[in-house]
């Protein structure tokens, strides 16, 4: 199996899907000539030409809204927002047009749209650093992918492009250079299937993207002390694989969600509610969330580190539960 970076895996997924289906088009700010501000789309203009790979004005509303219109008329647009935070900038187009255009018109339209949204830690401050998955998960009509490995970055993006529903695909900025094995060719990652990244009996940890990386690092340390945690990577948040989490909690009796997002009504809150509704008898310990304490994300790195869950935070939370 070849080893690729997360960023190359995304680029490969785009190239393969564009080669497979001429209806796939790719556009966004600086994506064509320059290859994107994170260089994820480098080389695609040369491969597919300016009718299929093109730069846009700084107009997030029309970038996303045009994606809805084009998708409804038979294209399969992939739109790159420069920062995931801008799903709010294009709020009408993401939540109402992409999410509801089909429903509002009684199913007359099909919207095979993918919006690529680079999320997470950046050092660019409150409006360029968020992981706004919970907003998307809350909204009817939008699918939500959160790939954590190069293999899933490729497999989920290829699958997203082929789905007939709008997908908000969060690619984490701190993972772009992560290396990992990526199967060649047709390896699609199904939506709605979580994966157990590490097996254990002590506690179930649900985490994805950079928080998954931190959870895995904490798990190594805990393992040296004889504490084995189970780590679940949901891979997509809508559809959301509830069963895998519940099955794991039946075994461990405890659950911690680690998320790089605001605590109140975040994804962790939803998972907590799910466990209350469907797994209360199996919970031996209080459910726990590690999340950003409801403040915007600052710019200075030491201030970011003060609020985003760290390996230490995860380690300590598990120890508290395990004691």
């Amino acid at each position: 199996m070849p080893t690729l970076t997360y960023s190359q895996a995304i680029n490969d997924a785009l190239a393969e899907e564009m080669r497979r289906d001429e209806n796939v088009i790719l556009y966004g700010q600086d994506v064509a000539v320059w290859g994107g501000i994170f260089k994820v789309t480098a080389g695609l203009l040369e491969k597919f030409g300016p009718e299929r790979v093109f730069d846009t004005p700084i107009s997030e509303s029309v970038m996303v809204g045009a994606g809805v219109g084009a998708a409804s008329m038979g294209l399969r647009p992939v739109v790159e927002l420069q920062f995931a935070d801008f799903v709010i900038t294009a709020g009408d187009e993401i939540f109402f047009k992409a999410g509801m255009w089909r429903y509002m018109h009684g199913g007359a339209h099909t919207i095979p749209l993918v919006v690529r949204a680079p999320s997470g830690g950046s050092g660019f401050g409150p409006e360029h650093s968020a992981c706004p998955e919970a907003f998307i998960m809350h909204a009817p009509g939008l699918l939500c992918a959160v790939p954590s490995t190069p293999a899933d970055a490729k497999g989920l993006l290829k699958q997203a492009i082929r789905l007939d529903n709008p997908v908000i695909y969060f690619e984490h900025k701190l993972l772009y250079q992560m290396r990992g094995e990526v199967p060649d060719g047709e390896a699609l990652t199904p939506f709605g299937q979580a994966v157990v990244r590490r097996e254990g009996e002590a506690v179930t940890i649900v985490a994805w993207q950079d928080m998954l990386r931190r959870a895995l690092a904490a798990a190594e340390r805990l393992s040296q002390e004889g504490i084995e945690v189970e780590i679940i990577d949901p891979r997509t948040l809508n559809p959301f694989d509830r069963a895998t989490i519940i099955e794991s909690v039946k075994k461990t009796g405890a659950c911690i969600v680690v998320e790089e997002a605001y605590r109140t009504l975040g994804v962790g809150a939803e998972i907590g509610a799910l466990l209350l509704e469907e797994a209360l008898p199996y919970l031996d310990k209080p459910f726990k969330r590690l999340a950003i304490p409801d403040v915007p994300i600052p710019t200075s790195q030491h201030l970011v580190d003060a609020i985003v869950p760290s390996v230490d935070d995860i380690y300590r939370a598990v120890k508290e539960l395990a004691d």
Partner: peptide, 8 residues
Amino acid sequence: VVSVGVGM
């Protein structure tokens, strides 16, 4: 904005 995509 939808019209732009339809036009595309």
